[in-house]
Each structure stands twice: as structure tokens, then as C-alpha cells.
């Protein structure tokens, strides 16, 4: 438990000093021959992927090919599904997160998640962003308020909501709600942010704002995003992994994937021939 926390702090320092960076691995998450099953059905096959630090990694591929499953492996969100099990290793910050002594609460503070549909709590805007801090037992009001302001500024929502912090979050538009959910995740200062199709329920303008946001966030966070929108992956990500039937077919720099895919299936998919 403290291991993850202390590593997180080390990592934060490391961001600034590139000398130290080279000492440790440049990957925030890596998997080794990972298989995953929903009861008898195998959903992921022999996944070996290394997610870079402080970059945006996109998962693309047709529906039901394992992108979200893998994303939810990274913060053990699949633990709540009956019959879900994994084989192989998943390292986050060089810690095996499926090891016996792992505290999932601590893991999830470090690996935050933004969901497909905006899911603010039916509470005030203030309470939404304060939630993650309060459940950690932080009661220092000025610290909480400082973190709320900072997080809301990071998602460019502060100006729009600073005068209605006590209002219910359900009163915000869909795009604002999703930015609020991102702010809520950022408030606890995770090192990784997992995003499961975060813009699929939003209009193009809100989508654009969230994409802009991702450009900013990659300076401080390692981001993994699942998307069905190929242009989005091309625009915002540094690396792209193409999934097909539970396997990663191709994983490379986004530029290479979109301009010069090595695999025929990848080429077909990104050029819109199937999927």
C-alpha cells in the first residue's frame, strides 16, 4: 500500500529530472503474457504491452475486441464482475497489481478512471470534486478547496462553475459533466488516467474541448484512452494499439500506425473497410 504511494511520489519528482528518468523504466504500465477470461470465455489473449509515461496511448478496434477489458484490468475494475480472472502479470509503476498483497483502493487512487457516460454523483459540484479527497480522510478544508480549484482549472471548467459550486452537478451540460468527472479524477492526483471512450456520449464541440484538454494533461499524467473514433486517436495520441478479437494486432507510434501500418488488418480498419 505505502509502496505504491511512495513510488508515486518518486515518479512525480522524476518527471522534472530527466537524468533520473532514464534510471527507471519509461513505462508506467506493462503487461506480460496477460490472458483474461469472463468465466469460460477468453477476452484477452497473450497481451504484452508497455504504456509510456506522460503520453497519450490510444486503444482502437471494433466493439467487443477487448479494449475496455484491458483498460479495466489496469485499475482492477473488472474485480466486480463475477467470474472474471486474469493470468500473467500487470505492472503499474513496477508493482504487480494482481499480487496478493495489493490494496485495490490505493491502486485506484493512483490509476484514475473516466467513464464512457458522464457519471457525476447526484451531489453538488463541490462535493463531486471533493469526494476522492474526503474518502481518503482528508478534512483540511483549505487544502480541499485548493485542490478543487486547481482540478477544475485543469479541465477549464472553473470559470463556468466557480459561482455555483453548491449547485447539483446534474444541472451541468453533458460536456461540462464529463469535464467535471475528469476534474474529480484529477483531484486525487493519480499518475495514470484511464479513459473509456470519454467523448462518445458528447457533441462535437464538447468532444473538441476534451481533446484539447488531453493535450494539456499529458504533461502531468500518463493517459490511456479507448476510442472508437479513429480521427480522435490520430489527433490526440502518441501511441496507438489496434485490437482485434482480444489480441493486440499492432502497437506503435500513432504516426506510424496511421501512415504506414504494418498489418493488413490494421490498414483495413483505419481506412474504414471494416469495424
Amino acid at each position: 500500500m505505502t509502496e505504491i504511494l511512495s513510488k508515486k511520489k518518486k515518479k512525480k519528482k522524476k518527471n522534472k529530472t530527466s537524468v533520473e528518468k532514464s534510471v527507471k523504466s519509461n513505462f508506467i504500465i506493462s503487461t506480460e503474457s496477460l490472458n483474461a477470461y469472463y468465466s469460460e470465455t477468453q477476452a484477452l489473449f497473450d497481451i504484452n504491452i508497455q504504456i509510456p509515461k506522460l503520453a497519450v496511448t490510444a486503444f482502437i478496434g471494433p466493439s467487443g475486441c477487448g479494449k475496455s477489458t484491458l483498460l479495466r484490468v489496469f485499475n482492477r475494475m473488472n474485480d466486480y464482475i463475477d467470474g472474471f480472472k486474469t493470468e500473467g502479470k500487470v505492472l503499474v509503476d513496477d508493482t504487480d497489481i494482481y499480487a496478493k498483497n495489493i490494496d485495490t483502493e490505493t491502486l485506484r487512487k493512483n490509476v484514475g478512471m473516466v467513464f464512457q457516460k458522464p457519471n457525476p454523483f447526484p451531489k453538488s459540484i463541490y462535493e463531486n470534486v471533493a469526494f476522492g479527497l474526503k474518502i481518503q480522510g482528508i478534512n483540511d478544508k483549505s487544502f480541499i478547496e485548493h485542490r478543487i480549484e486547481e482540478s477544475l482549472k485543469q479541465v477549464a471548467l472553473w470559470g463556468e462553475v466557480k459561482d455555483k459550486m453548491k449547485k447539483n452537478a446534474y444541472g451541468l451540460s453533458g460536456g461540462q459533466q464529463q469535464r467535471l468527472c475528469i476534474a474529480r479524477t484529477l483531484a486525487v492526483e493519480p499518475s495514470v488516467v484511464l479513459m473509456d471512450e470519454p467523448t462518445s456520449a458528447l457533441d462535437p464541440i464538447s468532444t473538441g474541448r476534451i481533446e484539447e484538454l488531453l493535450f494539456e494533461l499529458r504533461n502531468n499524467y500518463s493517459i490511456v484512452i479507448v476510442t472508437h473514433n479513429m480521427q480522435q486517436a490520430a489527433r490526440i495520441s502518441d501511441k496507438t494499439a489496434f485490437f482485434w478479437l482480444g489480441k493486440i494486432v499492432e502497437y506503435n507510434d500513432t504516426k506510424k500506425i496511421f501512415t504506414n501500418p504494418k498489418n493488413k488488418q490494421t490498414e483495413n480498419y483505419i481506412s474504414g473497410h471494416f469495424g
Partner: peptide
Amino acid sequence: PKSLREASYGMGAT
């Protein structure tokens, strides 16, 4: 909705 529980678990709530 399940999504509210997931949001809570996703932030490290017990």
C-alpha cells in the same frame, strides 16, 4: 446506476 458505484470505486473508495 452501476455507473455511480463504478465512479466511486474508480476513485479508490471502499
